[in-house]
Design a protein around this nucleic acid. Sequence first.
DNA 1: CTACATGCAAACCGTTTGCACCCTA
DNA 2: TAGGGTGCAAACGGTTTGCATGTAG
Lengths: 152, 152
Amino acid sequence: MNKDILLQDQLKRTGLKTTRSRMAILDIMHDKDCPVTAEEIFLSLKEKEYQTNLSTVYRTLEALETADLVSRIQILNEDKKMFALNEVGHRHYLVCLECKRMVTIHGCPLENYDQHVEDETGFVILGHKLYLYGYCKECRPKRKVSGIDSSC
Amino acid sequence: MNKDILLQDQLKRTGLKTTRSRMAILDIMHDKDCPVTAEEIFLSLKEKEYQTNLSTVYRTLEALETADLVSRIQILNEDKKMFALNEVGHRHYLVCLECKRMVTIHGCPLENYDQHVEDETGFVILGHKLYLYGYCKECRPKRKVSGIDSSC
DNA sequence: CTACATGCAAACCGTTTGCACCCTA
DNA sequence: TAGGGTGCAAACGGTTTGCATGTAG
């Protein structure tokens, strides 16, 4: 399978051994193509009849993070953390407050803004994080909202 | 003390009883004027010789959140949550990755962007969250950085 | 064959909750 | 005086860790 060779390659390049777990987890994350929790990964693995363990999932994600293939992100004041595949360039997300679905936003409205703030504050700006919150087409009917959600 | 009367007023308006704990916690949050953790509040109270309890701090913050005086926010992939006083309008923060200091950014570069994304995606956008990450003047010398931090 | 990966169970740590007592309105 | 607030200790839940075993290179 070509895809497997690709994943193997990614691992080899970063000095990680290619184990079944790592392949399987990268595979799932590629499929989902959006941030996921450790538990979601664990459950997906189970669904695929792949026997594993939650702590292995965490350790694998940690390894992939160190290898810069994955980042750990935190949004919506939930208690769980999410993990996302690293892509070239940075990404912004649109988050549905009802179904928790996250959609990638392409392009960046803040091209020159980082520089502007550097000049104004004396910070060295390394990057930024931008999330838009709201309700998606499907969830909109479920909630009639007047004001902005306090979690925004 | 005038300040106390102000805080009392804020509480009364939201239907909360004015207790020593609530006054003390609001007071500390006003003083700090930046997001803080529950534990930081707890320690500040101790410093001021105000005997209390961590779970009271959490319960108080919860009450203040329900009353819309405070919001719970989460940034930097840390395990603790932070709490911030609600202000009119929304706020954006500049976060130092070294000392964790957060500075309020005034103004918003995304005035028309929400609308633009609504049109494009069919989401109802309720709000957005924007954080800039980097190193502040004081911490800049401590770290020589080449690329963007993976937590951004 | 050796260093690194994994499974399992137990520890960890921020946060929440149950319950008895206390205090504001 | 009644109903909400507080302190204390124990529970909770996501994540991490120690240790014995397994496996890729």
